[in-house]
Simulated scan of single mutants.
Amino acid sequence: MVFKFTIDDVLNRYLPANRLNRLPYPISRFLGAHTPSPKHDYLIWIEILVSSFCGIALIEGIFKSQTVFTAHNAPLIIASYGATAILCFNASQAPLSQPRNILVGHFLSALIGLCIEKLFSLSQAGRDNYWASGALSVAVASVAMSIFNCVHPPAGASALLPSVDESIRSMSWWYLPVQLVSSVLIICVALIFGNILRKYPVYWWTPAPVGKPKPKEDLESLSEGEPHSEGGITVVPGIHTITITVDSVMVPEEIDLDEIDNNWLEGLQSRLRLLSSE
C-alpha cells in the first residue's frame, strides 16, 4: 500500500544528507556506513543467535538491576521487544527493522496507548471496558505509524499493554522512558553485531532523497512518452531495464512500483553512493 502523504513529505527537505562515511572507519562501520561481502548462512545464523540473546539479555539485565525504574514497577522486559528482536536481528534489512521504525514506532504507540488508557481510567464505565481501550489504542497507533512512516509491527503490543496489563498501568508515565531505553539498547546491540558480517542499518531515517528538493517538473505540461520523476525515481517510457547509478534510478513506465519497491531501489542507490565514496 502506497500512501500519498507521510510526515517525510514535510520533514525530508530540512534534513541534511548522510555524512557517516566521513567519520573514521571503525566508527562509520558500526553505524552502517560500509558495504558487506556475502557470508555463509551458518555464520549469519550464529550472528542471529548471539545478537538476539545479547539484545534481550541486556534489556533484562538493566531492568533487573536497581535503577531509577525499579521504584516504578518496571517489568523485567516489555514483551513487545521479543518480537522486535526477531525483526531487528533476523530481518535487519527490512524497512520495518530500521532504527527509526523501532525507536519512533514503539514510543509513538506507547504514548497513544497510555493516553487512551488514561482517558478510559477517568470513569468507572471506562475502567470496566479496557478491552475497548486496547482495541482503540492499536487502531490509532497503526494509523499514526503510517502517517509518521515508522511502521513497526511489535509496537502494536506497546500500544495494547497499558490497557490489558495492570503492572504496565501502575507504571503510569514511566512507561514511556522505559520504552525509549529499551529501544536504544536493542538498537545499540544491533549496531554492534549487525555490522560484523552484515550491514545495519540500511538507512537511519529514510532511503529517499533529503534536503531542499529540486524544482519539480510540471507533469501536466510533459508530452506523452517523456521521462518524468516520481519521488526520486525517474520513470522512462519504452525501456525494458531498471538502471541504478549514483545519480539516478530509472525504471520502465509500465512497472507499477509500491513504497517497498521504491525504498529497495533507493536503498541500493544509497549503497552505490557509499561504495563510490570509499
Rank of each mutant, 00 (worst) to 15 (best):
V246K: 01
E226A: 10
A144M: 14
G267D: 11
N149H: 14
G156A: 05
W264Y: 12
K199R: 15
A208Q: 11
S270L: 10
K212P: 03
S223R: 06
P252W: 07
G267H: 07
W173M: 09
L197N: 04
V140F: 08
P237H: 06
K216C: 04
A157I: 15
M145R: 08
P207Y: 03
P153E: 07
V202R: 08
H240G: 07
I233N: 01
Y200H: 05
I242C: 07
M250R: 13
Y203R: 01
S270W: 05
I168R: 00
H152Q: 07
K212M: 12
I192Y: 03
G267K: 07
S248P: 00
L191R: 05
P177W: 07
S146C: 13
P177N: 10
N263K: 12
A155T: 01
V246G: 03
S270I: 08
V184M: 11
L180C: 14
A139D: 03
A141C: 09
P177M: 06
E230S: 08
W205Q: 12
S182F: 06
I168A: 09
E220W: 04
V251A: 02
S229R: 04
D256E: 12
D218P: 07
N149K: 12
N262C: 14
F148R: 01
V202A: 11
N262W: 05
P162M: 04
A155P: 05
L222H: 08
I244R: 00
T241F: 05
P153M: 02
I187W: 01
A144H: 08
L176W: 02
I187G: 04
G232M: 08
G267V: 09
I260N: 10
S221V: 13
G267N: 12
